[in-house]
């Protein structure tokens, strides 16, 4: 696989910043730490022979079983996974970057988990990160204008979280 050379470069350069590499998956992915994310992304955008110059999609996946019986059966602790789908116009290659972060920075105070924003690497990330913030509740540090994009500004909660509950009422409109 052609990604092997890239992964070697990544490991040499970032060491512990690279957590897991899974080249045998349907889409090859590399898991990095939140603190190394920006540097890895900048490296990937400019690296010779690959040039991941386009950020196609940013997704947040909420890993949480609200049913305690189901939660016992799985081998992961609740967390949020951010998935960055990258591709290259120049070399036509694709790569997936993953970052795992906790579900809350401080759950009692409802403080959102934090991750550095990649808006400085790819401008398109500004809207994608706003959408992730809006629907999954992730705070992107360094984002130029982090506010809701699809939901109204005064909406409460983060709809794509697994423990989200639909409000019963919104400005006099019945929710259920």
């Amino acid at each position: 696989m052609s990604e092997i050379a890239l992964v070697t470069q990544l490991k040499d350069k970032f060491g512990d910043g690279i957590v897991t590499v899974e080249l045998a998956a349907i889409d090859a992915w590399v898991e990095v730490t939140a603190s190394a994310l920006i540097d890895v992304c900048e490296f990937l955008r400019d690296v010779e022979d690959y040039h991941y110059d386009m950020c196609n999609c940013i997704t947040a996946i909420d890993y949480l079983h609200t049913d305690p019986k189901k939660a016992e059966k799985v081998d992961w602790a609740p967390h949020i996974e951010l998935v960055y789908h990258l591709s290259s116009i120049a070399t036509k290659k694709t790569l997936v970057i993953k970052v795992k972060i906790p579900r809350w920075k401080d759950e009692a105070a409802q403080q959102l988990p934090e991750i550095p924003s990649v808006a400085g690497v790819w401008t398109t990330a500004i809207w994608h990160e706003r959408e992730v913030y809006d629907l999954s509740g992730v705070n992107f540090i360094g984002h130029p204008e982090l506010k809701r994009i699809l939901c109204p500004d005064d909406w409460e909660g983060y709809p794509l979280r697994k423990d989200y509950e639909m409000p019963l009422e919104y400005h006099g409109m019945r929710g259920r």
Partner: peptide
Amino acid sequence: GEAYLETEAPRGQMGFYVV
């Protein structure tokens, strides 16, 4: 598992991601 695929729709690249 998970799969991501983009196709060339008339307005651009439409991607779907399933986990």
